[in-house]
Structure formats: structure tokens, C-alpha cells
Amino acid sequence: MKRLSLLAAFVMAVVIMLPGALRAEEYVIDTKKSHAFIEFKISHLGFSWILGRFNTFEGEFTFNEEDPAKSKVSVTIDTASVDTNLAERDKHLRSDEFLDVKKYPKANFKSTSIKLTGEDTAVIKGDFTLRGVTREIELNAKHIGAGKDPWGGFRRGFEGVTTFALHDYDMTYNLGPASKEIEIFISFEGLKKK
């Protein structure tokens, strides 16, 4: 009797979880082989752009084929990995005048809702925590493609853009009137979990 009820519980658990597991595919963002980039762009005096990126981060997402709006994504960034191709500038960016990486070693994005805006586009809302401040941001996202890779895996890729003011995250260092906002571009490929 005891065994039977255990078996019943197990079967029920499988029955309940299976459809969800089938519908929501789980992916890990492929940072190992670097098919994922978090880049940013900020004006230099209004004359040109400074481009930079975060070299170290990790993330995962679920993708719901039937109802993509139910998908979820989360990314965690090592703020110390900021790279603008100039060691002295990066050192300054890590200091407490900008990212304050000693105090806030991680930045984090977690989606809260997804609104489809076209066949392969969506607005992803989520909480972005940077420098200890959490605010809602909106990513304009695009599904780029998905399919089997030549090495036996299944991949799916997206890109997204968002803009926010440095001031929103308590970065008040004066870089001049043209450099108050930063644009973030993220592009990543997820490797489907087996």
C-alpha cells in the first residue's frame, strides 16, 4: 500500500511536470565558447563613441515555443570585467566613481514580463541591479534564430538593446552633457540543456 501510493505520487509528479518541461525549453547562455556579448556605448564629449564590454558574465533562459511571452531570462555580470580597451580607463570605471566593483561585484538582470511586438520581436521588462540600485528597464529584443548546430547541440539566439541614464544608478561623475546616457547591446546564444 505504501509502495503503491509512492508510485502514484511519482506518476502524478511526472504527469504534472512533463508538459511544462516539454513546452519551456531551458537554455544556458553560451559564455564558455563566447557566443554571447554584453557591449555598451557612451558618447565621448559628443564627438564619438566609447565602446566597451563586460567580458565575464553568465545567464540562462527558458523559451516557451507555444507562448513566447512566458519565456524568462536572467543574466549576472562580473562588473570588474569591464573592458574599454584602455587599462587606465577601466581602472577608473571600476573605482567608486563609477561601478564601485569592490562593493558591488555583480550586476544582475532578471526578466519580469515579456510583450511580443512582432513576429520575432518583443519588449522584455525586467529588474536590472547595478551598483546596488534595482530599477526596471526595457530591452528591445529580437529572436535571431534557432536550430541544430553541427556538433549535436541545439541553439537559440537573441539580441537586445536598452538605454538608461548613468544617474539612474547613482553614477554622477561628470562626463559632460553629451555623456549622460549609456546604451547597452546584448547578443547571446543559448545552448539547450540536455
Partner: peptide
């Protein structure tokens, strides 16, 4: 050696 070098050296 990139990333940690300028921090440690500094």
C-alpha cells in the same frame, strides 16, 4: 596580463 594587473599594480 589585462584585468587584474592594473588593479593589483595600482
Amino acid at each position: 596580463y589585462k584585468e587584474p594587473q592594473e588593479e593589483i599594480a595600482g
